Amino acid sequence: MKAIRYGFWAIVGLCLIFVGIANREFVTVKAMPTAFADFLSISPTIELPLFVVIMLSVGVGLLIGFLWEWVREHRLRSDGRAKAREADQLRKEVDELKKAKASAEGDEILALLDSPTR
Rank of each mutant, 00 (worst) to 15 (best):
117 T>F: 07
88 D>Y: 02
10 A>M: 09
47 E>G: 03
86 E>I: 04
5 R>A: 14
110 L>G: 07
15 C>L: 15
38 D>R: 08
10 A>Y: 06
72 R>W: 03
8 F>L: 15
66 F>I: 15
85 R>W: 01
83 K>F: 07
43 S>M: 10
71 V>R: 12
88 D>K: 05
110 L>K: 08
108 E>I: 07
42 I>V: 15
75 R>Q: 15
116 P>F: 05
43 S>G: 10
63 L>Q: 08
72 R>C: 02
45 T>D: 06
29 V>E: 00
108 E>L: 09
46 I>E: 14
64 I>A: 08
23 N>E: 04
57 S>M: 12
75 R>G: 14
90 L>G: 01
73 E>Y: 01
25 E>Q: 13
17 I>D: 01
49 P>L: 02
80 G>C: 05
107 D>R: 14
67 L>Y: 12
116 P>L: 08
66 F>C: 09
83 K>E: 15
15 C>H: 08
88 D>P: 00
16 L>H: 06
91 R>A: 13
96 E>F: 05
75 R>S: 15
81 R>G: 02
77 R>C: 05
36 F>Q: 10
29 V>S: 03
66 F>Y: 13
90 L>Y: 12
1 M>W: 07
113 L>F: 14
96 E>S: 10
59 G>S: 12
33 P>L: 00
6 Y>H: 10
118 R>W: 04
38 D>F: 00
111 A>P: 01
9 W>D: 10
8 F>W: 11
47 E>N: 09
70 W>Q: 04
45 T>M: 07
67 L>H: 10
40 L>E: 03
99 K>A: 15
19 V>Q: 02
57 S>K: 04
108 E>A: 13
117 T>I: 06
92 K>Y: 11
106 G>Q: 07
20 G>P: 03
107 D>Y: 08
1 M>Y: 08
26 F>M: 14
75 R>M: 07
74 H>N: 08
2 K>F: 14
79 D>G: 01
5 R>Y: 13
83 K>Y: 12
89 Q>R: 11
3 A>T: 08
85 R>V: 06
68 W>V: 09
104 A>K: 14
68 W>G: 11
118 R>C: 03
115 S>M: 07
112 L>W: 06
93 E>L: 10
74 H>P: 00
81 R>M: 10
76 L>M: 11
108 E>Q: 09
22 A>K: 13
45 T>A: 07
79 D>M: 11
93 E>Y: 09
30 K>V: 04
62 L>A: 05
93 E>I: 01
100 A>C: 04
17 I>C: 11
68 W>I: 10
14 L>W: 10
58 V>T: 05
32 M>W: 01
50 L>H: 06
53 V>S: 02
6 Y>R: 09
104 A>M: 14
36 F>Y: 08
102 A>M: 04
23 N>M: 02
67 L>W: 13
53 V>D: 00
28 T>K: 06
41 S>G: 07
74 H>S: 10
11 I>E: 03
29 V>I: 12
31 A>M: 09
45 T>H: 03
31 A>V: 01
66 F>P: 02
56 L>P: 00
86 E>A: 14
46 I>N: 08
31 A>H: 04
96 E>V: 05
75 R>L: 05
